[in-house]
Design a protein around this nucleic acid. Structure first.
Length: 573
RNA sequence: CGGGGCGUAGCGCAGCCCGGUAGCGCGCCUGCUUUGGGAGCAGGAUGUCGGAGGUUCAAAUCCUCUCGCCCCGACCA
């Protein structure tokens, strides 16, 4: 059974989602919840196998934790309240609270503290490949952002920082090998730690237009970070023109940067917008140059809160006495004023006047208002200088397929996971955690490897190496195909045989859609000359090969295609 | 959570404005022909029109409620 679809399903927009449905890899059960069909499951298993091999090689041990976990563990770390609606909660028949695990720091740390006593038992690294559930606000793009999804998660435990860093590096290296073996073009970037927490983190980003994340990287040095994290250096070019006197100016009905700058015939970079934010219980004003974007993650980090949000129009009115659109720092009382450090280089700029339909021209910080704190608060943009030395920054879209975290003692502290060190003293275990989205890796591979006919699988994760199709109904081609099929199986070549009595065109199109790296076409025409046709899906190149030479020929093709998988690390672990 | 859109045969859609026998294409079944890039002819099967309630002689169509799905946004003063 190959349930391919001739037409694009109405529900899918992105390439990988469409092709996964059309090629018969997945079917939707509910929003963000999918069944893996036989073909899709084979791809998932291939990726899992690569992950297993590399994790084992890196010294991690596989275990399997439950999907349901009791609320008490989550209450210990505070995440029962903190995680929000993404945590799908339910009660068992005794009215006890449970949730479906979105990640497993709590469960593994609980295991660790019960079982491990001594530093001699460390380092330890446990991993599992398991179904996770996160009740996403907006599931989309098929397996790219599902609610239920398969994840490889790993957790390392060390007796000190130095050890934890080594464990982290091992995982970083393993991830690099995993995604390389999967045939992906990716980048490891510095990342923020978000809900998981911790100190250091890298995300593995597959570069693709459909990515939901933005990657920032330098064109000349090795700097790469996601947009939330990417550092912006203080300005180098400082305006030294003489200060002009502050002037009020009427800007009737002109609120946005666009409107005000057009009205005043100035550039957005000569205007400073004043954003009012709610950070926990407090309000702050944030000054940002007109052509820059505020980075809320940076703001939250600076203020030591988990989340910030724009103040409501009502709150803006209370704080500034004006409707939204005319807030400004001059005369603003009672709340801290923060400014992006780009302002340090600015003079004689335009700001709101805290009065309807009015702005100030030629405002200057220090003279006209005080800034409580300058900081890096904006998003990087193309052309910004690299924060590590040389080159300028480029922005690209990426799909996050993996992330590694150096957690430190965040969880071992709240859950009191301690070990005895060589002095007999109790110490908190130092942890790391590491995740790979298995289904998302498959989707990302399709985003990077397809054409208008369908998927072009990288050999290591292809559901089958070879798609065998018989295009003639004759006895002779059926028996030739049977012999060939068995010969390929005997040679450990995975082959999908399309023996349906469909017309040739249907089979060709399905084969292209499903995207096995190689197609073997058996037909009466070729058999008359004792040959079959081998087509390389990616290049479209067809070769006529004599029957006895097929296995050898395929082997050669495989070696050429599998440049990544062939290069196995020769570590002694 | 806000905005927009869509639920009609297995799939893709029309019909709805203007109420009156539920349609088209693909797929599926039967037969004949065809057979190396999504075949042709002939015949055939398939629908609680997402669900509930209402209006009406009469509802896929109008009204109310509800469920599901998709897309955009949740970033600017």
């Amino acid at each position: 059974l190959i349930p391919t679809l001739r037409e694009d399903p109405g529900e899918a927009e992105t390439v990988s989602h469409r092709l996964m449905l059309r090629a018969g890899l997945i079917r939707k059960v509910a929003a963000g919840i999918y069944t893996y069909l036989p073909l899709g499951l084979r791809v998932i298993r291939k990726i899992e196998q690569i992950v297993r091999e590399e994790m084992n090689l890196a010294g991690a041990q596989e275990l399997l934790m439950p999907i349901a976990s009791p609320a008490e563990l989550w209450r210990e770390t505070g995440r029962w309240d903190y995680y929000g609606k993404e945590l799908l909660r339910f009660k068992d028949r005794h009215e006890r609270d449970f949730c479906l695990g979105p990640t497993h720091e709590e469960v593994i740390t609980d295991l660790f503290r019960r079982e491990v006593r001594s530093y001699r038992q460390l380092p330890l690294n446990f991993y599992q490949i398991q179904t996770k559930f996160r009740d996403e606000v907006r599931p989309r793009f098929g397996l790219m952002r599902g609610r239920e999804f398969i994840m490889k998660d790993a957790y390392s435990f060390d007796s000190d920082e130095a050890g934890a860093k080594i464990s982290y590096q091992k995982m970083y290296d393993a991830y690099t090998r995993i995604f390389t073996r999967c045939g992906l073009t990716f980048r490891a970037v510095e990342a923020d730690t978000g809900l998981i927490g911790g100190d250091v983190s890298h995300e593995f980003m597959v570069l693709a237009e459909t990515g939901e994340a933005t990657v920032v990287y330098s064109d000349q040095d090795t700097y790469a970070a996601n947009l939330e994290r990417a550092e912006v250096l203080p300005p180098v070019d400082v305006d030294t023109s003489p200060l002009r006197p502050l002037t009020r100016i009427a800007t009737p009905q002109h609120r946005t940067v666009e409107e005000v700058t057009a009205y005043l015939k100035i550039e957005p970079r000569q205007l400073v917008k004043t954003l009012l934010y709610k950070a926990g219980e407090h309000a702050v004003a944030v000054l940002i140059r007109g052509d820059h974007e505020l980075n809320e993650v940076k703001l939250a980090r600076l203020l030591h809160v988990t989340d910030v949000e724009l103040a409501s129009p009502e709150a803006v009115h209370t704080l500034t006495g004006t409707p939204v659109g005319f807030a400004g720092p001059v005369g603003l009382k009672g709340i801290p004023i923060l400014a992006d450090h780009a302002l340090k280089g600015m003079r004689n700029f335009v700001v709101g006047a805290n009065e309807a339909d009015t702005h100030y021209q030629d405002a200057n910080w220090d003279r006209d208002f005080q800034v409580d704190r300058f900081a890096d608060l904006r998003n990087a943009k193309p052309g910004d200088p690299s924060p590590r030395g040389s080159g300028s920054l480029t922005l690209a879209k990426g799909i996050e397929v993996g992330q590694v975290f150096l957690l430190g003692t965040k969880y071992s502290k709240s859950m009191r996971a301690t070990i005895l060190d060589d002095q007999g003293k109790e110490r908190l275990a130092v942890m790391g955690c590491y995740g790979i989205g298995v289904g998302r890796t498959a989707a990302a591979a399709i985003e990077q490897n397809h054409d208008d006919k369908g998927i072009i699988w990288p050999l290591p994760i292809a559901p089958f190496h070879v798609h065998l199709l018989t295009v003639s109904q004759s006895e002779s081609s059926a028996s030739a195909a049977t012999r060939l099929y068995e010969a390929l199986l005997a040679a450990d070549i995975e082959v999908l045989w399309d023996d349906r009595s469909e017309r040739a065109g249907v089979k060709f199109n399905d084969a292209d859609l499903i995207g096995a790296p190689f197609q073997i076409v058996v037909g009466d025409k070729g058999l008359a000359d004792g040959v079959v046709e081998i087509k390389v899906r990616r290049t479209g190149i067809k070769t006529r090969v004599a029957l006895p030479d097929i296995v050898a020929h395929l082997r050669k093709l495989c070696v050429n295609a599998d440049v990544t998988g062939a290069a196995r690390p020769s570590s002694g672990r």
